Amino acid sequence: MDDDIYDIDTSSVPRGDGIRDLTLTDRWNTPLGKPNGGYILAAMLRGLGDEMAADDAMVGAVTYLASPETGAAELRTTTLRRGRRVQTGEAALWEGDRHIAQLLASFGARTGRSIELGTPPDLPAPDDCINPKDFPDAMPASTIFDRVDYRLGAAPGWALGQPSGDPTFELWQRLAGGREIDLPALAFLCDSYAPPVLEIGAAQSMTVQLTVHLHRRPEPGWIATRLTTRHVINGFHEEDCELWDEAGNLVAQSRQLAMLL
């Protein structure tokens, strides 16, 4: 059953006229007791791509409009353009009369040359890293941590009650049990770990807007993750994420706007 949880919880059923039914489960809840924003984005991206019968997702920009609850939801999709190389659509997530999130996304085939100027995180091998699940007292209570395997190069200061002052995290991630990571799952992994602002003493953070660029499907294995925040202004902050596969390929990156709580 565990191998199927991601597929079940991100799936949606077409009803006709671009509308799809889905269920947001409590298996991806954050410490705030709400469905994780990356999980919501993955379900929306997958549903929109299925409805459009589109190529691979390339970019998705989601704005969160209301606090989500677990339970039945509705995805209202619209195809905006079907170009030769890029297909674009939008999707609105509704729970009853509450508009929860709005997504604009583009899909396309992977062609053309690649030039990489960046470098992946310099992490020990996953087997040589810390498994935070070995220290449950330092893990905030949330079900999302049952859905993802994490490996840390060093214990984060915030988990020890001693924030480092540097809002930067580098770690390995993968879906629980090593399940294959598709492109919507990469979007989820951009928002699946604790926010780095915890290292400057923030209590918690909530995403307002999230844009992900999905560059390629990863090679099987772990995903090296770099998370950074450099600006906290008027109670809001940015968070940048890079995801690299074990072969050293940049597979996704994101930027989000979030508010301190």
Rank of each mutant, 00 (worst) to 15 (best):
D245A: 14
D7S: 15
L32I: 04
M206A: 14
T78D: 06
R82W: 03
N29E: 15
D4I: 10
A66F: 11
G83V: 10
T229Y: 07
F145S: 08
L214V: 03
A138R: 02
M44D: 01
D3H: 09
A138T: 05
G165S: 09
V208N: 10
P163E: 10
L24I: 10
L103K: 01
G60D: 00
V86R: 13
N29P: 02
P14G: 11
V148L: 07
N249T: 05
A203E: 11
N131A: 14
L183A: 05
E180C: 10
G118K: 13
D146H: 02
D128R: 03
Q87F: 01
D134V: 07
A73C: 09
L24Q: 01
R98E: 14
A57K: 03
D26G: 08
N249I: 07
R113V: 11
I233N: 06
I100Q: 03
G178R: 09
I8E: 12
H237V: 06
D191E: 11
G71K: 06
T119I: 07
A258E: 03
Y6E: 12
D240M: 08
G177E: 09
G161P: 06
A53R: 12
A92R: 13
L186W: 05
A54K: 01
A203T: 14
P167N: 00
A73N: 01
G108L: 00
I233Q: 11
H215R: 15
C241Y: 01
W244S: 02
A54V: 04
L32C: 06
F188K: 07
N249H: 14
A258T: 08
Q204T: 12
V251D: 05
R226P: 01
F135Q: 12
S192D: 04
P132S: 13
M206I: 15
E90S: 13
I19K: 09
P132R: 03
N131W: 02
Y193G: 05
D127T: 09
A53T: 06
A101N: 08
G89C: 02
C241M: 00
L214F: 04
S205T: 08
A61T: 12
D3M: 08
T211F: 04
G60S: 02
P140K: 09
L198H: 15
A141W: 01
L123W: 01
S164R: 08
P156I: 07
H215E: 13
G165P: 00
R255Q: 09
I200E: 10
F145N: 03
R179I: 13
D17N: 13
A203L: 07
Q209M: 14
